[in-house]
């Protein structure tokens, strides 16, 4: 990891081809591999969890049921009863982000949510869906969203561009929030882990002193688990709020 006295904090985000020469020939990176793994893990959780079909669920079934009902109630609470239509989308989004964040915390793995290309792609998908839903439900009336009722007409040339930029900034803020949180967490891991190696290189005193950054990294791992859940939740709930705006318009 850390070379002699240098901290390569961003090297962990470098993409490299996975699956040998075949993967290299189609630019299949370890990021794509992790996406496939987390997708498979989500499917496995639901399939294996719901296989017993017990009235009194076991641990795995309880987890699968909590996952389902949790996101379902999030949809209906935030969007209203129309939210059920968006449930598959929100569920997929939430678990794709959550498993990306969680699997990224495992050693030797890769956090695909730490790449802005991935998070911005997801956010773009959200904003296109929100716009299409709003246009389908409200038609051209949707554009009244950019000019709040009751505002003085004189201010229209100022308010409309500001509202449009504010609307367009949603995917940007959605993607930056997730990406920045993930990058910051993993950079901190790397920096403190490098401190451990560097201190251990000094000698006996260094080895004792290295307990400090090691303890910090242990605490950080707990914090990052929280962040992983929180950011996936924020991503999903903001999508729900945007969909609520699209369905109800103001």
């Amino acid at each position: 990891m850390a070379a002699e006295h240098t901290i390569d904090a961003l090297g962990q985000f470098r993409l490299s081809p996975a699956l040998g020469p075949l993967g290299a020939s189609v630019n299949f990176s370890q990021s794509n591999l992790m996406m496939l793994i987390s997708g498979a893990a989500i499917l496995w959780l639901l399939w294996a969890g719901m296989r017993p079909r017990a009235i009194v669920p076991g641990r795995l079934q309880a987890l699968a049921e909590i996952a389902y009902t949790g996101i379902h109630s999030m949809c209906t609470d935030q969007i209203g009863h129309e939210g059920k239509r968006f449930f598959p989308f929100i569920f997929t989004l939430f678990f794709f982000v959550l498993f990306g964040n969680l699997f990224g915390l495992l050693p030797f793995s890769f956090t695909y949510t730490s790449h802005i290309a991935v998070t911005f792609g997801l956010a773009l998908m959200v904003i296109v869906l929100v716009t299409v839903v709003a246009l389908r439900i409200h038609g051209l009336h949707f554009f009244s969203y950019f000019f709040p009722a009751g505002a003085p007409k004189l201010l229209a040339p100022l308010i409309i561009p500001v509202e449009i930029i504010s609307y367009l900034s949603r995917p940007v803020s959605l993607s930056i929030r997730l990406f920045a949180n993930m990058v910051a967490g993993h950079v901190m891991f790397e920096v403190f882990a490098s401190f451990i190696v560097m201190l251990a290189g000094i000698g006996t005193i260094g080895v004792i002193a290295a307990i400090g950054p090691l303890a910090l990294n242990v605490a950080l791992m707990g914090f990052e688990l929280l962040v992983a859940f929180l950011q996936a939740y924020v991503f999903a709930i903001l999508t729900c709020i945007y969909l609520h705006d699209a369905v109800h318009l103001h």
Binding site: S169, R170, S173, I176
Partner: peptide, 18 residues
Amino acid sequence: GLRVGVELVSAMIVGVGI
């Protein structure tokens, strides 16, 4: 603080981009 910062920065990014 983080939320406010992200909102401010992202709106600025979109403005500069446009």
